[in-house]
């Protein structure tokens, strides 16, 4: 049930409609920091393979790729190709939640969040103490361009991700991944060569 595949006509819970397993989207992220008057804006592309994982490729103002596999292995691939495993538990958790939202993994999300649906908005409220400490809620809104994901944090350092140009893919592998991202960072991690 990938979230990326939702169309503007759907008026129900954004997470409800099952779609294709392979997805592409572009993102614009706004990050707010306490004490910083205006948000930090970055842009990039997302690739989803519901069997393998998610790629977050930031194109500007810096270039880097985050690889979140569903086998719980996460990497940061820098512009120069340097691959760093992500060790920080909080960073892994946040990345995992975002990847699951993009994938539309209801089973996972229902374990950790209570869902509220209102018009075109779905709100995820954390049910566990550990998540509640960091996340107040996550809101999923339909927009004319696609979907907006807003992460409201308890420390007000909120994050808003606008997904647009969303489309289903018929095929996704290492080669097509590189072509879609117009870069070759991270694809080898998500689609490792078979021996």
């Amino acid at each position: 049930m990938p979230l990326l595949a939702l169309s503007a006509e759907e008026k129900q819970d954004i997470l409800d409609t099952p779609k294709s397993c392979l997805q592409y989207a572009e993102f614009r992220q706004e990050k707010r920091l306490e004490g910083l008057p205006k948000p930090l804006v970055s842009r990039g592309r997302i690739l989803l393979d519901c069997n393998h994982g998610t790629l977050w490729h930031t194109q500007m103002p810096i270039q880097e790729t985050l690889v979140y596999t569903f086998s719980n292995k996460h990497w940061l691939v820098k512009a120069d190709g340097e691959v760093q495993p992500i060790k920080n538990a909080a960073q892994k958790r946040i990345g995992d939640i975002l990847a699951r939202i993009v994938r539309g993994d209801r089973e996972f999300l229902d374990k950790y969040f209570r869902r509220e649906t209102e018009a075109n908005t779905t709100r995820l409220l954390p049910t566990q103490r550990r998540l509640k400490k960091y996340i107040d809620n996550i809101t999923l809104d339909e927009t004319p361009e696609g979907v907006r994901v807003t992460v409201v944090r308890t420390d007000n350092q909120n994050m808003q991700i606008d997904l647009s140009a969303m489309r289903e893919l018929t095929q996704l592998d290492d080669l097509s991944c590189r072509a879609l991202l117009e870069a070759d960072t991270g694809c080898a991690q998500l689609f490792p060569a078979k021996d």
Binding site: L33, T58, I62, L76
Partner: peptide, 8 residues
Amino acid sequence: LYGSAGQV
């Protein structure tokens, strides 16, 4: 500031 390093 912009990258994953600042995600947390």
